[in-house]
């Protein structure tokens, strides 16, 4: 659970935050957030890399490089996968268990190859 406490008017402090970078999965970070941006975190350099840059370079919904509505991107993805004879689903290692389950359900539905980052 989020343990937000006000450090000052604008800064929220979250304690015992878990770092989603390496599989050491440190669960003792204190993260200072101001305006939906991490301004301070007491982790290692890798964890600083994750949190201090998390507000930048956000992806946008796109098809063929053009910005589209979210639902249109999802529909196009569904059309591609429904047409595919031998699809590949790859990744999973940098998201949570709930999303991994959904990937497996989808792979089962469309007869996909499913691989995670175990071998790479």
């Amino acid at each position: 659970m989020a343990t937000a406490a006000k450090a000052d008017e604008q800064t929220a402090v979250f304690n015992n935050v878990v770092c989603p970078f390496c599989a050491t999965l440190c669960d003792d970070l204190t993260v200072h957030v101001r305006g939906n941006q991490v301004v301070k975190v007491n982790g290692c350099n890798l964890s600083k890399g994750v949190f201090m840059n998390a507000h930048t370079e956000w992806a946008t919904p796109r098809v063929d490089g053009k910005r589209v509505d979210y639902d249109d991107a999802v529909d196009e993805a569904a059309r591609i996968l429904a047409r595919s004879v031998n699809p590949l689903i790859f990744g999973l290692a940098a998201t949570d268990v709930e999303a991994q389950k959904k990937c497996i359900e989808l792979a089962d539905l469309i007869g996909a190859n499913l691989d995670n980052a175990s071998s790479v």
Binding site: F21, N45, L46, K48, G49, M52, N53, A54, T56
Partner: peptide
């Protein structure tokens, strides 16, 4: 490397 892992999140 530590530097690679740290800077890859900048962009």
């Amino acid at each position: 490397t530590l530097k690679q892992g740290t800077t890859m999140h900048i962009s």
